[in-house]
Design a protein around this nucleic acid. Structure first.
Lengths: 342, 342
DNA sequence: CACTTCTATGGGAGCGCTCCCACAGCAGCG
DNA sequence: CGCTGCTGTGGGAGCGCTCCCATAGAAGTG
């Protein structure tokens, strides 16, 4: 009576014994089954409290085939995971949204092709009930195998490949690129250049294409008026330096990320161009750790990782509930936030 | 033969049947038991490959009482989790160090007292084999209950309370505070002030005390020459503004974090004090996203979250292996990185 | 050659839960 | 008063593994 004979953690059997009911009834109480008498509920709950009982998650998972955990997968081979506060916001939102429904979050950072293979194994291995996946790079192999994995998955940002059957929650990169470019045009700027993101990320390509189309540029002219960065501050500096060399008379820059815009601003200052008087600059992200703190504060296209993650969790919840209807592709709107740089 | 009758995932029984051995032998092969014949090993491995078998983690956990996962717990009620790249570095290092030994990482962000209670439940619930815990705040309740939890735990930074039986991996905050202060003194500065961190964090208190003792200040004088921030950039700005008002003739500032130092630099610039000519500034963290990018680049006390997390993982591994010897408290050295601000 | 080791193997037991079938008890009905 | 239906309960089966005991056969010993 009271505690368990073996001395270890109490089991459901111990709870049942203490409550004077059977294991089956105790289980029904814990799973909120309607077919239990009120007095049984009370007795079991009292026994649970008295014994400090907690269900064994492994035993439960074994029979229900549900683990109560969700994987959050981020592929980022470089240093951006900690250089860019964007990721921290994503992770934090995931951590906040998931426990709300009593699910734990397994975080996987993928830095190499081997990591990707391991992640595939892991996701197929029954460790988690579903996955939220960020695989923006062209050589990320997870999207290609995603359709074969018998696991609910929602992608953040559209991965490469014509995987229309994947569930994705994306930001409106094209709309953002257009917004930024048209804003610069509206300011009366005549030579709008861009510091583009890495060509292996679709989001970067979409922003670039939107810029090119908003200006109606030929491929050659677009190439001349653009330079690539890698979404980092240093990359932005290098690209800006290259651009100013090649297009000395530029009077506007659309940078595909705030971090790159920050690098660009620094270079512009170094070469004596005033922002926004000589050169207007627009960033992308509206990163709260970057955009308001640059010199001058940065006008930027706001995309909201919090909303994105929320929508991803909501979509995954639907999939976990067996609801496979609904659009596969969801696109979140972006907006221009004006500050002083443009 | 071949695949499973039921059509679901193959089980160990299926593998055994395909390999022409018993379930017991198949299990021995998978667990690298020495008592198996080479031909049995080959047959089982071939069957595993042919069937695409993966062990059911729940079934394994049920009997071994090991889940193969480790919790990483971070208590941070404010926005610092994504404002401060420090956390991202910690998380990324954990993600990198843990899978090396085939363990998964469950991330828990604690923002409220309820979260703390939930975390306690979770850690006691058998979901994970161990935990790496960051609970720097005075009202974090996890450290107090840690000793009662039958779970290997390693703390990052020393939590409040005289919990000498806890395993901790800390940075040398006192040494760092002394280093910074003595450096400023060595520069010939006569009025060294400090922008201290929040009083509810032990690390902040240790840095503050080291500063006070290096200067040999009375309590009143220490209070006059210091102002508190909350480890954020904005907090640093406010504290610096307050300090410059109260101690107009200050010629040096030791800021307890790089982010606060960045805020301080901005205020100093605004009021027309030149750094380092008029005021020398030293930060703390040597945050790679902040210190090299301030105006001017920041001299800072380097602490290395990568090393810290590595040591924590190593210590947890020892505990998981049953080795409870070794020092409970480990302190990591810090060093001064000179740039232009001091 | 009978005996004891040793090695490799088979298969039962059992981890702690949920699911489900069977059944007791009790109304309500003709 | 025998029948059906409904509610609450007990307990067997079984999820897929690992552990361990028993045992067959090979190898070693006097």
């Amino acid at each position: 009576m009271g505690n368990r004979a073996g001395g270890g953690r109490p089991t459901l059997e111990d709870v049942a014994a203490a409550a004077g009911v059977s294991r089956g009834t105790a289980s029904r109480v814990l799973n909120a089954s309607p077919r239990v008498s009120p007095q049984a509920v009370d007795a079991v709950l009292a026994a649970v409290a008295a014994l400090g009982y907690q269900p064994n998650p492994a035993a439960r998972a074994l029979v229900t085939r549900r683990t109560g955990t969700v994987a959050v997968v981020v592929s980022e081979p470089g240093d951006r995971f900690f250089d860019d506060p964007h990721f921290a916001r994503l992770i934090r939102t995931a951590a906040q949204e998931l426990p709300g429904t009593d699910r734990q979050m397994v975080l996987m950072l993928l830095r190499s092709p081997e990591d990707q293979a391991r992640a595939r194994q892991f996701l197929a291995g029954g460790h988690v009930d579903g996955a939220l996946v960020f695989t923006p790079h062209r050589d990320d192999l997870l999207p290609a195998v995603a359709a074969d994995l018998p696991l609910p998955m929602v992608f953040g940002g559209r991965p490469w490949g014509n995987a229309t059957e994947l569930y994705t929650v994306d930001n409106d990169n094209s709309g953002g690129g257009r917004l930024a470019t048209e804003h610069l045009l509206g300011l009366g700027r005549s030579l709008v250049t861009t510091v583009a993101g890495p060509a292996d990320e679709l989001a970067a390509e979409e922003r670039f294409t939107a810029w090119r189309e908003a200006l109606g540029l030929s491929d050659e002219e677009a190439a001349r008026r653009s330079a690539r960065g890698d979404f980092t501050r240093d990359g932005g500096e290098r690209a800006m330096a290259e651009l100013i060399e090649r297009v000395p008379d530029l009077d506007a820059v659309f940078a595909a990320s705030d971090l790159m815009a920050a690098g660009a601003l620094r270079v512009l200052r170094q070469v004596g161009r005033r922002v926004p008087e000589d050169v207007a600059v627009v960033g992308f992200d509206d990163n709260p750790m970057v955009a308001p703190h640059t010199e001058p504060p940065l006008t930027s296209v706001r995309q909201d990782p919090v909303t994105q993650m929320r929508r991803m969790v909501a979509r995954l919840d639907e999939l976990l509930a067996g609801n496979e209807s609904g659009t596969h592709r969801e696109v979140l709107p972006v907006e221009l936030v004006r500050r002083e740089s443009a």
